[in-house]
Simulated assay, not measured.
Amino acid sequence: MAKGLNGKRIAIGGSRKIDEISTLIEKQGGIPVVRSLQGTVFLAEKEVEPDLKAFVETGADWVIFTTGIGTETLVNVAEKLGICGRFLQAIRRAKAASRGYKTIAALKKLGITPEASDEDGTTGGLIRALEPYDLTGQRVMVQLHGENAPSLMKFLEEKGASVCPILPYRHIAPKEETVALLCREIASREVDAVCFTTAVQVRSLFNYAREKGVAEDIVKAFGESVLAAAVGKVTAEALKEEGVERLLAPELERMGAMIVELSRHYS
């Protein structure tokens, strides 16, 4: 019986669970092509300390949390520095906003109910929730997770806020030759689809493509014959921000569901 991905070359942009995704692709008859667009993530404890101390000293009018794990990590780092009580006080004095259900759960544990939160787990949803508020001259602390959420930062700056980002996690960039190779394969239609499992992977690809002046070629390839597959809403949103309209994202935000959806698409 023919399988949905028969003979299709599927590029994998992730750096985790590679064997697992490769097996899923092979079971559907596809050929997995590993092109990791994401270096390792590390806890930037030393780098985040001055930002955390500055926030505790000066406070903020708004605090925005974008990931559950990042929220918990900031609490843990504040604890190690012996300023956890003051950190929580500074958050409670401010208006809080959050993105994603895991972030709401992390804030709930701290007894904090966000004033504004998204309805769909995306940065766009968070921006829509913040739209009605006057942020002119407001100090806003933003917890980010290894990438700069350009659309959120731009929105806050356009609203007249003074933004202080805190990144408890940092990403080591992927190997340049890997990104260059995938760019060539997409532009020359040597891969049939690319699976993205985080927004960071999308940024890595497009930042490199812009730097080399080939971003338009990449968008064109995705619009015509190479299919972009996103594991979930946040990753899909990053692709749309880069101009990729033709993409596939499963209802269930899981890697297995993404491969099944891909197979169904080609069937």
Score class of each variant (00 low, 15 high):
Val244Lys: 03
Phe196Pro: 00
Glu237Pro: 05
Asn76Phe: 00
Leu52Trp: 12
Pro168Asn: 07
Ala228His: 11
Ile31Ala: 04
Gln38Val: 07
Val33Tyr: 03
Arg264Ser: 13
Ser204Ala: 12
Phe65Ala: 12
Phe87Pro: 07
Leu37Thr: 01
Ile104Ala: 13
Leu227Lys: 04
Pro132Ile: 00
Ile69Leu: 10
Gly14Ile: 01
Glu157Arg: 15
Ile25Asp: 07
Glu190Leu: 03
Met141Ile: 12
Ala78Phe: 02
Leu52Arg: 03
Glu185Cys: 01
Ala221Trp: 00
Leu107Val: 09
Glu190Thr: 10
Ala249Ser: 15
Ile127Phe: 07
Leu130Lys: 05
Glu237Asn: 10
Thr136Cys: 10
Lys102Phe: 02
Lys154Glu: 15
Ala149Cys: 14
Glu49Pro: 08
Ala54Met: 02
Ile166Met: 15
Gly29Ala: 08
Lys108Trp: 09
Gly29Gln: 12
Arg86Tyr: 03
Val191Lys: 03
Glu241Gly: 13
Val75Trp: 07
Pro132Arg: 08
Ala54Leu: 13
Glu211Asp: 11
Glu211Asn: 09
Gly70Lys: 04
Ala106Glu: 03
Ala187Tyr: 01
Pro250Met: 11
Glu20Met: 04
Lys220Phe: 08
Cys84Gly: 07
Glu176Ile: 00
Asn6Ala: 14
Glu157Val: 04
Val63Leu: 07
Pro50Gly: 04
Ala161Asn: 03
Val34Ser: 05
Ala180Leu: 13
Glu79Thr: 09
Ala105Tyr: 09
Lys46Asn: 14
Met153His: 13
Asp120Asn: 15
Gly30Ser: 13
Ile112His: 06
Ser263Phe: 13
Leu74Tyr: 06
Leu130Trp: 02
Ile166Leu: 15
Val214Asp: 03
Lys212His: 08
Gly13Cys: 09
Glu177Ser: 13
Tyr101Arg: 08
Ala106Pro: 12
Gly137Asp: 03
Ser151Glu: 14
Leu126His: 10
Ile186Trp: 06
Ala105His: 06
Asp120Met: 09
Gly146Phe: 01
Gly68Val: 06
Asp19Phe: 07
Thr103Lys: 01
Lys154Met: 12
Ala105Val: 11
Val163His: 00
Ile127Cys: 05
Leu74Pro: 13
Cys84Ser: 12
Pro150Ala: 14
Glu158Asn: 15
Ala187Val: 15
Tyr208Asn: 03
Ala236Met: 02
Thr136Arg: 13
Thr66Trp: 06
Thr235Ile: 05
Met255Gln: 15
Ser267Tyr: 11
Lys109Asn: 11
Tyr101Leu: 09
Val77Lys: 09
Glu251Lys: 14
